[in-house]
Amino acid sequence: MLKVTGIQKGIVIDHIAKGNGIKIFEKLNLAKVNYPVVLLINVSSQKLGQKDIIKIQDNVDIDFTMLGLIDPKATVNIIEDEKIVSKMSLEIPKEVTGLFQCKNPRCVTSVDDYAVPKFTRVENGKIQYRCNYCEELTEYKL
């Protein structure tokens, strides 16, 4: 069995749904950082059958909003001295800024660099966001 050691300090993103690990890895730009990062895929899990895990050493400053958007069921463990010092559950964010584009081609955010796309989640059972500028609904998809 493949064995990956724990980290001394940093973040472990656990219980990532199988297949989402690589997406989170890409969205958080983890290929470009200069601290150690481990991406584990298809790890056995009692809860999920198989899961993905990301371990990030030395850095705890990541975009939890983005994480909640991609996989709200993932969990985040903050590690210090090789121990979990806090456990966080993620949730689908109510407000999102700059993480994706408004689908309306007539929206000012599509043409003006000053207009950073900002959205507010609509409570309709889907992951849909209302643009704060043009009000069009955009469904978030990876």
Partner: peptide
């Protein structure tokens, strides 16, 4: 008046 939707809101922010 502006052809892009949300432009006045952007203006109001500045």
């Amino acid at each position: 008046r502006h052809p892009m939707e949300g432009a006045p809101k952007l203006a109001s922010e500045y």
